[in-house]
Amino acid sequence: MTAISERAAPLARPARRFSRSWLGLAPFFLFAIFFIGAPVTYLVLGSFQNNEGQTTLQNYADLATPSIANAFLITIEVSLVTAVVGGIFGFLLAYAVILGGLPRVLRDALMTFSGVASNFAGVPLALAFIFTLGQLGMVTVFLKNFGIDPYASGFTIYSKLGLELVYLYFQFPLMVLIIAPAIDGLRPEWREAAENMGASSRQYWQRVALPILFPTLLGTMILLFGNAFGAQATAYQLTSGLIPLVPLLIGNQIAGDVLHNPGLGYAMAMGMVAIMGISIAIYTLLQRRAERWRR
């Protein structure tokens, strides 16, 4: 910042000499280069090297080894399931409080809860679910009183299903937060116009409301997918590595080179970045499309 003198000529004038104006952004870009660019570059370069330091594509080929490919598949599965289920439930919940005829207070309460819950994750969340659905959890014990023993039928909170239930705790509130403005954006006149032309409630949803909401719905679900895909702390606390998720494998690789091949670890990280990148890109694209309609 000190590159610009205190008496810098007219500040608010549209800049003509871009080179000097760009200097004002130097601290930001330097920070980004040091703490985003450098680490990522390191991982990228590392992912193209073998143990002897030679350039290779082998690490990416090795992502196909059963254990790693399986980890990717399981992570994708968990993320997909929680994104779709959380997305649908979050949408219904948001719809219920906005257009379902419920009192207005409930809507405000839900929005605040969602803000908290979507930010409540990691260690305490995993613990809370263990106290709820663990072997001695409150709900488990409660169900046993009625002769239903989830654990007897093979359920455990430390399983994939258990993990999905935990992830849903921050997934659907996030859906509520993002989809609420879109539902609000459904103008009452659209419904009235449709009815005026003879459409039934179903026809209105089929032909007008759902098509308008579709890009936002799909985009947000993809965002939820990425949200679950990148999560590490919750799974770490809950499953202690019993379920081979990609973030957990990367964690093990950080703690000690368990793959005996740093390059493969870097390639795995890059695989994760690629999947996150694609989901964010699709999300942005769909969001832009939805914006265009919503003026």
Binding site: R187, E189, E192, A194, V208, I212
Partner: peptide, 29 residues
């Protein structure tokens, strides 16, 4: 109910369906 009446309405803020073309909007009813 409104969808059983044969009454046409033009709204203050147009209320065109944003996901449809002009032709689809006009042909909706």
């Amino acid at each position: 109910p409104p969808n059983k009446r044969n009454v046409g309405m033009v709204f203050q803020a147009y209320a065109l369906f944003p996901n449809m073309t002009v032709a689809s909007n006009v042909g909706f009813g």
